[in-house]
């Protein structure tokens, strides 16, 4: 819509105040190919969209965890200079403790965060297989998946986190059925 036609439209509605608010730029954005978008798009959604190919189990992940994670998060996810990763306790009570197992609502979030931001001295360096494996190992430590259960782009979104329905949206409209 040109500025002139926009102004006309606004004038017809009798809302001149809006005319100044909705301005148009010089249109300098460069078109970008789908491939380039895909290369930069790192979003991973709870339904699994964005998950890469690959797979790994807790058994595979134990070694990855020991090599890449344990120095900050402890041998069994108990924490160190990095946060603790294991928690099964209730979220009520004065000493309620939030960790992956009892607090995080989506398993895909654990994968996505690990893939993009961990380990902190070399973020983004874990392969897809290693990320699935270490995710499986952490879910295993939290009692959510079995030791031999392999996770991939299909099975990871199907993991039901215990606190999936534990959140109430405050300043956004919450869908009736959690995704």
């Amino acid at each position: 819509m040109s500025i002139a036609s926009h102004a006309l439209w606004v004038a017809c509605l009798g809302l001149p105040a809006l005319a100044a608010d909705r301005i148009e730029g010089p249109g300098l954005g460069s078109p970008v190919s789908a491939q380039s978008v895909a290369a930069r798009n790192t979003s991973i959604y709870p339904d699994g969209r964005g998950l890469p190919e690959g797979r790994g189990s807790a058994g595979d992940g134990r070694l990855v965890y020991q090599q890449k994670c344990a120095s900050c998060h402890g041998e069994r996810g108990e924490g160190g200079s990095g946060g603790h990763l294991v928690g099964r306790g209730p979220l009520t009570g004065s000493d309620a403790d939030k960790a992956v197992g009892n607090y995080w609502p989506s398993a895909t979030t654990l994968f996505a965060f690990t893939r993009r931001a961990m380990p902190m001295d070399a973020p983004g360096s874990l392969s897809a297989d290693d990320t699935y494996a270490v995710t499986a190992f952490l879910l295993y430590l939290n009692g959510i998946v079995g030791a031999d259960e392999a996770l991939d782009a299909r099975s990871l979104p199907a993991v039901r986190m215990p606190n999936r329905d534990g959140f109430v949206w405050i300043d956004a409209v919450q869908p009736e059925k959690p995704r």
Partner: peptide, 11 residues
Amino acid sequence: AEPVMARNETA
């Protein structure tokens, strides 16, 4: 269409 449910809006 929906939030991405990143670590910094969930955990």
